[in-house]
Design a protein around this nucleic acid. Sequence first.
RNA 1: GCGAGAGUGGCGGAAUUGGCAAACGCACUGGACUUAGGAUCCAGCGCCCUCGGGCUUGGGGGUUCGACUCCCCCCUCUCGCACCA
Length: 827
Amino acid sequence: MRYNPKAVEEKWQGYWEREQLFSVQEDPDKKKFYLLEMFPYPSGRIHMGHVRNYSIGDVVARFLSMRGYNVLHPMGWDAFGMPAENAAIKAKTHPAKWTYENIDYMRRQLKKLGLSYDWTRELATCDPSYYRWEQLFFVKMFKKGLAYKKKSYVNWCGTCQTVLANEQVEDGACWRCDQPVVQKEMEQWFFKITDYVEELLEYLDKLPGWPERVLTMQRNWIGKSFGSTIHFPLESGKGSIQVFTTRADTLFGATFMSLAPEHPLVDELCRGTEQEETVRAFVERSKQAKRGERAADLLEKEGVFTGAHCINPMTGAKMPIFVANFVVMEYGTGAVMAVPAHDQRDFEFARKYDLPIKVVIKASEDAPVPEPAALDQAFEEDGILVDSGDFTGMTSAQAREAITQALEARGQGELTVQYRLRDWGISRQRYWGAPIPIIYCDECGTVPVPEEDLPVVLPLDLDMPESGASPLPLSEEFVRTTCPQCGKAARRETDTMDTFVESSWYFARFACSDYDQGPLDPQRVGYWMPVDQYIGGIEHAVLHLLYSRFFTKVLRDMGYLQVDEPFTNLLTQGMVIKDGAKMSKSKGNVVDPDDMIRAYGADTVRLFCLFAAPPEKELEWSDQGVEGASRFLGRVWRLVHDNLEGLQAAAPYDGRAEVGSTLQALHRKTHQTIKKVTEDIEQRFHFNTAIAAIMELVNQIYAVQDKASQDPAYWPVMREAVETVVVLLSPMAPHIAEELWERLGRRPSIAKVPWPTWREESLKAEEILIVVQVNGKLRGRLTVPADVTNEDLEKAALADPKVQSFIEGKTVRKVIVVPKKLVNIVV
RNA sequence: GCGAGAGUGGCGGAAUUGGCAAACGCACUGGACUUAGGAUCCAGCGCCCUCGGGCUUGGGGGUUCGACUCCCCCCUCUCGCACCA
C-alpha cells in the first residue's frame, strides 16, 4: 500500500469538516488559548509566506489543543484595499466581485492545507456587518475628540485627480500616468494616536513576550526626546519663532535661524521685501520635490534669506532668518536654531552662505578653543561651555538645564518633550474602503452620522472611473443626504478609512463575529482576549502592531475591552526566499503552493516549511528539501505498513516489564523524543529541531527492526515507538497522522488524543558515556555505570590506556570532573 | 549617521546552563536489492596528514582547566529608522 497524499488528505479534510472538529465554544472550566495568525489580504492566491505563517500557527494550535487547552484559532480576510480597485479597472469587473471571488479561492487553498481553523468565525472586513462597528468607533472617537480633521500635505496627481499613497509615487511621478506628483494641502481625517503616546511607549516594557527587535522599532518610531522649546523674538517686534532643541547648551552659538519651507511664518516674513520673489520660488521648488527626495542626503543643503531677523534671547544678537530645504515641518516646530559650530548641517549651511560661526563648546576643561575659521567640521559632542556669559564653565548637561531655567524665568522657553510619532492620517480618497460616517451641513458644519443610522453602506452599484479616482464623489445618490441635526440638504464625506483601521480590531471581533447587538460581545470577548500568541511577518512590526495597540486602548477606554494590550506574545516569522532573494514575479522565482500541494501533498509542504529553518529566520526554498520531507513521510508510512500485523496485535509497552538492551534503548529514545519535541514546540517554537528529533527516533526504529524480534516485548516496544512517532508528528503533518493512527487500529481523531508525556524513569540509561580530556583536548571516551561517583570517574579516566599515553612523564596538576559528563586532566 | 540582528562543512541548519563542534536533512560517494532505478535499504561524507596525530565556528586579542557560547577591538552582510534639530 503506497502512500497517496491526495487521497489521504481529501479523506481527512472531509472528516474534519463534517465533524466540525475545530469549532470552539467558550468554556470557563477550560484554560483558554487564543492563537492568531495575521489574516491575509485576498489578493487572489496564497503565497509561500502564508503557507509558512499558517503552518507554524497550526502546529501551535493543534499542539496546545492536544495539551488540553480550549484553543481559539480563527481566520478571516483583510478585504478592503486598493489592489481590488486596480484589478477591477483592469479586468472591467467590480472590486467586490473580485474580492469575494478571491476569498472563495483562497479559502479553498487554506482548507487544502489542512489548517485547524474554526471557520464558523470567519469574517471579511468589507462586509457591512463588520465595518458598521468600525464606523461606530469612528463616531465615538469623533465625539471624544480622538478623530479630527485638519489640513495636511498629500501626494496629488493632477492628471488622475487623486491622492496617492507614498508607495504609489515612483521617482516623483504617478505610477499610473507617469505625470509629476505634487504636494497638495488637503483636509484629512486623523486619529489622535498622540494622546496615547506615553502609554504606547511605557507598555513596551510590559511586553516581555515580544521580540526585542520589534519593541526597539516601535520605540524608535515613537521617538521620544527630551529638550527645550525656546522663543526667539522677531526683530520687527511682532511675535516670535518657537524652536525645539535638545542642545539648549549651545544657545550662545546660535547665529541664524532656519525655517521649513512649509513654515507658516515664511509667507509673512518675506512679504513686501525684495526677497519675496526668490523666497516664493524656493518654497515652490521645495514643495515640488518628492518627500523621498527631501529625506536622506539626496538633496544638497540649500536655503534663501527671508529678509527678516530674529533676536537670540541670550546674546541679544541679530539672527538672519533663512528658509532651508533640510528643515522638515513634520518634526518639532518646523524651525531650527542654527548653531554652525556644533551642528554639521548648520556648519555646511553657514560655510555655503558665509554666515557667522561662533564656538561655545570645548571638548574638555583644558582643551583649546578653536578659531571658527580653522574648523573643518562641527564639534557635535557634549563638552564645557565657553563664551556663554554666566554659563561659561558649565558642562553641557548642566547648561541645558540652567539655560532653560533662565529662559523660563523670563517666559522665553521651557523644558519640553518631543515625539517623532504623528497623528494617524486615516483619510483615503479611495472607493474600496469603509466610508467615514460624517455629514457636512452648511448650517451645522461637520456632523457625525447618528449611531442608529449606521452603517453608511458603501454603494456597490457604481462604475469605476478609468482614471483610478474614487467614484464616490461622483455619485449624487451617495453624496446627497440630509443633515441629521437640522434636516436640511447636506453632503456626505466621500473619503474612506485607511485599511489599517480594519486590521486594528479584527482580533477582538473573532471572539464573537456573529454578534449583532454591538461591536463586541462583552462576555465572549472577556473570555478570549487578549490574543495569547500572535504570529505574522516582521513587515508589520510598526504600523499594524502599533495601530492595534492604540485601538485596543481606545476601545478599552470606551468600555468595549478589558485589556490594555492586544497581543501577549508575538512571533515574527522570517520571509520565504528562493535563490537568495524574495520571491517575486519580476525575478521569476515564485513557487506556487498549489503546484507543491498537487505534487507532494499538504503534509509534505508543511513539514518542509517547518523543518528547513527556525520560524524567525529566513526560509530558503529548496525543491530538493521538499523531496527530503516527502521521503521522510514515506519512510514513516512504510514503518507502519511493513509492520502492520505485528503492531496491531500488540499493546504499547508501558515501561514496566524487563526487556533486552536493544529494546530498552528504543524505549528510552522514545521517551527522550517525547521530551525533546514537547519542549522544542512549547518553549522555543523550534519545529526544525523537533522534527529532527522525530527523524532520529524513526531512524532508530528502522535500526531495531527485526533485530530483537524473538523478545516477547518486541512488538509492544515497537508499537509504543511507532505510535509516538505518529502522535508527535500529528500537529505538523496531520493528514498522514490521522490515517496511520486509524490503520493502527485507533479511533479518530488523533487531534483529540492527549499529547504524550514522558516518564522520567524511562529517560535514564544504566550506562553513560563520559568524555575524557587532557588539557582541554578530547583524548578518550569511557562507558561507566550511570550512578558513578566523581572519585571513581577520576580513577577510571586516569587509568584509561589512551589517556595514559598522553599524561605519561608529565605531572598531573589538576583534574576537573563535571559529574556524569566529563573529566579534564590538566598536566 | 543612529539602532537592531547575523556570520558554523558543498548547501539548509544543530549545539537549550561555558563541557564530545557539525545533530537532522539536502547534495555527493560506495554497496545491497533489481530486467531497470530518478524507488527502497545499508554504509561513508569538515580540512590536512607521514594514519601517531594536527587544524577548524568571519579576523585579531582576552577571561577560563575548558569558549560557537562570556569580554574588548576589527571586518562583512541583512533589516529598520534617517537632514529628528
